[in-house]
């Protein structure tokens, strides 16, 4: 700053360019804010403005089109927790979804990751295969699995009949006892590759010399896993559980395409119930109130996540 003003004084005719220069100076000294501005505008308009609006809307009864919105205070929230069994059921389903994702995907994912890293050559191909479902759209995956579960030509029933267990065949997604389990099966099919990939990424950050010396010391594969890998994976496992919980609150596509929350509203999660309430029953106020609870539930989880990963960073 000082240097440039000195130069201006010494330069003849610099007054003409003074405003130009000071503008340039202004732009450069505010470069941080100016460069952030376009992104900031998008984020404020499309994320934070709707977020604030959501809290406001949740206090009203409305139908999207009517000019008069009726202020009802916390009525929507009272109804949700005291008078809406499907909403409560959807919360239970979200918890079940998160719990089964953690219980099934994490152990299998960790096992697969150690195998991929130990047997590099075949492991690479295997890794490529198990991650594949993750890049296919959830609608396509849901359709494929709807066909797998189809009562007539679905491969699962065909398989059961072929091996003489035909009495177990059923319309998997239409049967209230199996619909949720069938959906969970598909969820695990999609995300097992992701869990494996995240585990591999964590394990790769461990210097390979540790594994080499373990092998020289004659540790078997399982010993190596228990003595070296597992302790290092503890943090990862906590993170994965948190991700599974947060992910369960973001779950929508699969359930909407496969069952639409049926049969008898038994497979709803909070997001599909929000959609039904807001857009099918035209109750945006109630939908916004469900949105508030999704935001709060998943935000608490995310705070845990941030706190945890930060302590990991600064350790």
């Amino acid at each position: 700053m000082k240097r440039s003003s000195l130069r201006e004084k010494n330069k003849p005719g610099s007054t003409i360019f003074f405003s130009h220069k000071s503008l340039k100076n202004f732009l450069d000294s505010n470069a941080g804010l100016i460069l952030s501005l376009p992104a900031l505008a998008f984020v404020i308009i499309f994320i934070f403005y709707p977020l604030v609006q959501m809290f406001y809307l949740s206090l009203f009864r409305w139908n999207f089109v009517s000019p008069n919105m009726i202020f009802v205070g916390i009525e929507n929230y009272v109804r949700m927790f005291l008078n809406d069994p499907v909403y409560l059921r959807s919360l239970v389903n979200v918890i079940l979804l998160a719990a089964q994702s953690s219980a099934i995907q994490i152990p299998i994912g960790v096992a697969l990751a150690t195998i991929v890293l130990r047997y590099r050559r075949i492991g690479g191909l295997f890794w490529a295969i198990i991650f594949l479902p993750y890049v296919i759209s959830s609608v396509a995956v849901s359709l494929i699995w709807t066909w797998m579960y189809n009562p007539y030509f679905g491969s699962i029933n065909v398989f059961l009949r072929t091996i003489g267990l035909g009495f177990l065949a059923r319309p998997w997604l239409g049967d209230i006892n199996t619909a949720l389990i069938a959906i969970f099966g598909t969820v695990n099919w999609i995300y097992i590759g992701l869990t494996t990939t995240m585990t591999i990424a964590t394990l790769k950050s461990i210097p390979p010399s540790i594994f080499e010396s373990a092998r020289i010391d004659g540790l078997s594969g399982f010993q190596e896993f228990r003595k070296i890998t597992l302790p290092l994976l503890k943090e990862l496992i906590v993170v994965l559980v948190i991700i599974d919980i947060a992910g369960a609150f973001k779950f929508f596509d699969l359930i909407w395409v496969m069952t639409q929350g049926g049969p008898s509203d038994s497979t709803h999660v909070t997001t599909t119930w929000l959609y039904r309430a807001a857009f099918r029953s035209s109750e945006p106020g109630y939908g916004a109130a469900i949105g508030v609870t999704i935001f709060i539930f998943s935000f608490v989880i995310v705070q845990l996540l941030i706190k945890f990963t930060r302590s990991r960073l600064t350790r």
């Binding site: 809307l57 999704i294 935001f295 996540l305």
Partner: peptide
Amino acid sequence: NLLIAGFFIAPHAVLVPLLIL
């Protein structure tokens, strides 16, 4: 914080106000 906070928010929650916007 404003720029990255959205990563932790489920878009599903704000579907109603987003459609109105």
